[in-house]
Design a binder for these strands. Structure first.
Lengths: 237, 237
DNA sequence: TAAAACTTTAACAAAACTGTGGCAATTATG
DNA sequence: CATAATTGCCACAGTTTTGTTAAAGTTTTA
């Protein structure tokens, strides 16, 4: 599945230039021509990263960035701000508002792509590195091999994806609804309790993978009333 | 615990300037004067972020960055590269090598601090995001972890929410009716006395969290006839 | 000082939540 | 086509959480 990047810019030339370069670098590009449209698309197609022009009609990049940061479901969505003005005040304002990076025009295509990649590596390592690690768990997304303490672990597709989602956000609590959305996709109807069942299967699989009798500690934390998260075992257990 | 930042630069003035500004911004700064020393310090004191000068004797920033990226234990350590030259080639090289950000001299203190904060936000979400603090109490709403004086505290969902509501308004007195509204929602009928019970449970939980016999002071203030509020302990209790 | 007003907290039953074996349906796999 | 694997759901059991009540403790008021 290609990495989706949303670009919002009201200037067609600019939009074209950006799309072309990111497309060439292998990203799937979605375009928006103003802030409102961008917001709709974000809600709808869950891009992995967004690039916002500072100045746009209706909703400016800054406003949009603020909005995104204020909503739980987009709070961690990587945002790059784009501005014609290079002055420092804008720069710091952009970053302080919660943008993850700031590029001032004119910029080189190379730099743009580098910054996008660097930001993705930081925020969604799975998309770039395709090896996820947590404690002694390793998940290679290319080969779909999973190991715990170097012992192979067998997982079904759903459990595997579930694990990947958790490992991309180590420690963060995800509600059943969020997990359904992230793992199953957001137009599939399944019971929330089904998450529990898969979590149970996942636990069983990763907590006793090896043949020798070693017992592993539970890396999955149930947060009563909220959902599930990964947790590093404390010294006591 | 303060966030530790390592700065490696062979030029004393530069080092001083950086330290001063980051120190003022509330970070704990550790200094290194060349790449080798930086490496030693990283292994030794586990900084949360490092700032590397591009040109340094013995081991350059670029080399050091490569080294860090190649080791599992520092693979995800946030790195900012610093360079005298602003040309794009360096810029993209730096980012491609795995640095998380790149700042070219001369830079403004404001921008530096903004970039550091932005980088920390995305690499160590727990340090920046969704965290409520009051005195020695910390409530991380992302991971749903609560600690008092760094000791974990176990809370049920209701108590947790109650605490969050109080911590969002430190010191302000909230009536039982307000608390019912904020915590339970405004179309639920529960006895006002119930608030007392939960407050009592909350107190018990946060005022004696640790195993060692330490006794913590009561952070919750009962305002007779009005309601409850958080209070910082005075010196006497 | 006694009564009144208010708060704390133990106890308990009800409600809510979670873990998991089992089952049928569906989907790969050989 | 037969067999195995995967998936979603139900239902029961076991826990934890929650709301209420009531008794006991404090503070304020008259």
């Amino acid at each position: 599945m290609a990495i989706k990047i949303l670009i919002a810019d009201d200037e067609p030339n600019q939009l074209e230039l950006l799309s072309f370069n990111l497309g060439k670098a292998g990203y799937e590009v979605i375009r928006a021509e103003d802030g409102q449209q961008a917001l709709d698309i974000i809600e709808d197609s869950h891009p992995d990263l967004v690039i916002l022009d500072w100045m746009m009609p209706h909703i400016s990049g800054i406003e949009l960035c603020r909005t995104l940061r204020s909503r739980p479901e987009t709070r961690h969505l990587p945002v790059i701000l784009l501005s014609a003005r290079g002055d420092e005040c804008d720069r710091t304002l952009g970053l302080d508002i919660g943008a993850d990076d700031y590029i001032s025009k004119p910029f080189s295509p190379r730099e743009l792509v580098s910054r996008v990649t660097a930001l993705l590596r930081r925020s969604r390592p799975a998309l770039i590195d395709d090896v996820l690690e947590f404690h002694d768990l390793v998940l290679n997304q290319t080969t779909m091999e999973i190991t715990r303490a170097d012992q192979p672990v067998a997982l079904g597709p759903k459990e595997c994806r579930l694990l990947a989602i958790l490992m991309e956000r180590p420690g963060r609590v995800l509600s059943r609804a969020q997990l359904l959305d992230l793992v199953w996709g957001h137009n599939v109807y399944v019971e929330e309790r089904t998450v529990d069942v898969h979590m149970s299967r996942l636990r069983k699989a990763i907590n006793q993978p090896s043949k020798n009798g070693t017992v592993y500690s539970d890396l999955i934390r149930t947060v009563r009333g909220s959902g599930y998260a990964l947790k590093a075992p404390s010294d006591s257990d």
